[in-house]
């Protein structure tokens, strides 16, 4: 697959330069934010910091780390992200498998009704108060499941996965049924392995969302049992400055803490993406399964 013609070679060179440029455009602000998070309050506030920390210190990170609930919050976040990934992925994939078969001979009666059911669920919502009442009334208050179940069905992802399933070659499936496989076997042994790129994508989105979602943590959980995102949000929440807290606010350095928060928020994707990378490389999946 080496470029052969001059035109293609020059395209490759141009393309690479463009990509490096784009990467820089995205990286540079992050470096700025990193520098902010490591700089002193005064230099941050007076806008002296560019890409190199001024008055190097780790106060912003310490401020977060020294909080007694930091470690439990980190643990809860990790547990929530993993559990939620497992539940959501399974629930949405199962539904996507069914709906990908449509309403015809291979599918189910009432297909259109179910599609409508999910579309309405995607577009409408009852609002915060009734959802809160429901979650507390069914006894999920302050339980990790309150952070997982209400958002487990994600119609956006469901439709995405379903369309990927639809694109899979029909012949493979029919052959499997001929050999006596049932739906569960076809789903687990054929559809899932063949859809690794989309599963990786959706999985990545889910991890990022769950890791950074803070609102559910703030209303469904008690103050000392919140996920990391909620905890960080409370650490950076700006107080009304007045005579009684001005000197603490001067030490607080919100912008640095916010910057640290951004980096903590991006952490999972920085850790996971390199692992998932191979699923985004063309050809690998179909090739592997064909084998």
């Amino acid at each position: 697959m080496q470029p052969t013609t001059t035109a293609e070679r020059s395209f490759q060179i141009f393309n690479q330069i463009l990509m490096v440029f784009l990467a820089l455009v995205c990286l540079v602000p992050l470096l700025h934010v990193l520098a902010l998070s490591l700089s002193s309050s005064a230099s941050v506030m007076s806008n002296q910091v560019t890409f190199w920390p001024i008055g190097l210190n780790f106060n912003s990170y310490e401020k977060a780390l020294e909080n007694p609930t930091f470690l439990p919050a980190l643990g809860l976040s990790a547990k929530r992200t993993i559990l939620s990934l497992a539940v959501s992925l399974l629930v949405n994939c199962l539904a996507a498998y069914v709906l990908s078969k449509g309403g015809g001979r291979d599918g189910i009666a009432g297909y259109k009704g179910f599609v409508g059911f999910f579309i309405v669920a995607m577009l409408f919502n009852g609002g915060m108060i009734p959802t809160y009442l429901l979650v507390t009334k069914i006894g999920l208050y302050n339980s990790i499941w309150a952070l997982i179940l209400p958002s487990a069905v994600n119609v956006f992802y469901l439709i995405l996965i379903m369309n990927f399933f639809k694109a899979l070659p029909k012949e493979l499936e029919e052959a499997a049924f001929m050999d006596g496989a049932n739906h569960w076997q076809v789903f687990a042994r054929m559809f899932l392995p063949l859809s690794l790129p989309v599963l990786a994508t959706v999985g990545l989105f889910m991890v990022v969302n769950d890791w950074n979602e803070w609102f559910m943590g703030s209303i469904y959980m008690k103050g000392d049992n919140v996920p990391l995102s909620t905890l960080l949000k409370s650490i950076i929440s700006v107080p009304i400055v007045d005579a009684s807290n001005a000197s603490e606010v001067a030490k607080l350095n919100n912008r640095s803490i916010r910057a640290a928060q951004v980096l903590i928020g991006a952490l999972p994707i920085l850790l996971i993406y390199p692992v998932l990378q191979r699923f985004f490389t063309q050809g690998i999946v179909i090739g592997a399964v064909k084998e």
Partner: peptide, 21 residues
């Protein structure tokens, strides 16, 4: 009974939810 951050409005949200429930 519980605590919630003031600065981002969470405390007020929780107070109102408490009243609603």
């Amino acid at each position: 009974l519980w605590t919630s951050p003031t600065g981002d409005g969470s405390y007020d949200t929780k107070l109102k939810l408490m009243l609603s429930s």
